[in-house]
Simulated assay, not measured.
Amino acid sequence: MGHIIVAESLGYDTELHYGSMSFDTSALNDKLDSIYVKNRYQIENDLPYEQKKQFDETFAKLVNEGVLVTLGGPIQTIFTGITGLIILFVRRKKIQEQGLKLPDWLAVFLSLFWLREVFNLFHSIIFELIYKEENYFGGDERYISEYFGLGSGTLPIILGITGLLISLLVIFKVLPGKLQFPFILSGLKGGISGFIFWFEFLGPVLLP
């Protein structure tokens, strides 16, 4: 959702698919192609040409706005997770006195959006161990790290560890002891089965 919000705010048409989203950059690509065709020799040999400024600005716009769209996903996840933590913090005394009520459970689930970062990290590592694609990190976090000149694992590791610590804090400090193990077990079972069901069966039908 974060990707789509950013892309549409920048004026792009978007499409939502079951495992990703896409946004239409054809106008920028066509503009670059048109300039490239007319000035191919100059561009490939780094020579001056009349439309160089326009070409450079359009290319920079394509790259920079692509990064902004990519940032939208992790930022939305982090914002949602922090919102949940703030609600839990504000209501901590009521939780201690009255136990978890509906708003508190909502805050718990919002705060556990941080698990996306944990999942992304472990998923990419396991994927690499199985398929040997020469990089243990993937997803938006990897591309953002590389864009800013950081190691490919910088953001995946930082956000993955942060997400794990926050999730453990919420589960073991907020939830009652008798609910902790059932919550973890049901979360694992539901998460894995839901992932498989969505990506293998329902998702391709609803959002191909």
Rank of each mutant, 00 (worst) to 15 (best):
Y131M: 09
I43D: 02
L10E: 13
V170S: 03
L159R: 01
N39R: 04
R92A: 06
W114C: 07
K101Y: 05
P204T: 10
F113M: 07
E65H: 14
F183M: 08
I184H: 05
Q98G: 06
F59K: 15
F109Y: 09
V6H: 08
Y36V: 10
Q51S: 12
D46N: 07
S186E: 09
V118M: 02
P204Q: 10
E44C: 00
S9P: 09
T162S: 14
V6R: 07
G81Q: 00
K52M: 13
K93W: 07
I75Q: 03
I126H: 09
Y143N: 09
P204W: 10
L10M: 12
E57H: 11
I196G: 10
Y12Q: 12
G99K: 09
F113C: 05
G139Q: 00
K61C: 08
Y136Q: 11
L115N: 09
S20G: 01
N135A: 08
K31T: 15
I43L: 05
T77H: 11
T25W: 04
F109E: 02
A7P: 11
D13Y: 13
N64K: 14
Y12D: 12
I130R: 14
E57P: 07
G177I: 05
I171N: 04
L16A: 13
F23I: 11
P204H: 09
F109S: 06
S193P: 06
E141Y: 00
Q76I: 13
Q96E: 15
W105M: 11
K94A: 14
L28P: 10
V170Y: 05
T14P: 08
R92W: 03
S26R: 15
F55N: 04
Y136K: 12
I171C: 04
G194I: 11
E44H: 04
F55Y: 15
F137A: 02
T58E: 10
V118L: 05
F127S: 14
A107N: 04
V63P: 04
Y41C: 01
P156F: 03
L202R: 12
G19A: 02
G151N: 09
W114M: 13
L88I: 04
K52V: 07
D13E: 15
L62Q: 14
G191R: 06
I126E: 12
N120D: 11
E128P: 05
F122A: 10
L207N: 10
G2P: 02
A60Y: 09
T80N: 03
N45W: 00
G11N: 10
F137P: 03
V108R: 04
G99E: 09
D46W: 00
Q180N: 01
V108G: 06
I125E: 12
I5D: 07
L165C: 06
G191C: 08
D33E: 15
I157M: 06
V63D: 08
K38S: 13
E15F: 10
I5G: 04
R116C: 06
K53C: 02
I75V: 14
G191E: 08
S124C: 07
L207Q: 11
Y147W: 02
A7D: 11
K53I: 12
L159N: 05
F183Y: 12
F119T: 10
L164E: 02
S34H: 14
S124Y: 11
I125F: 13
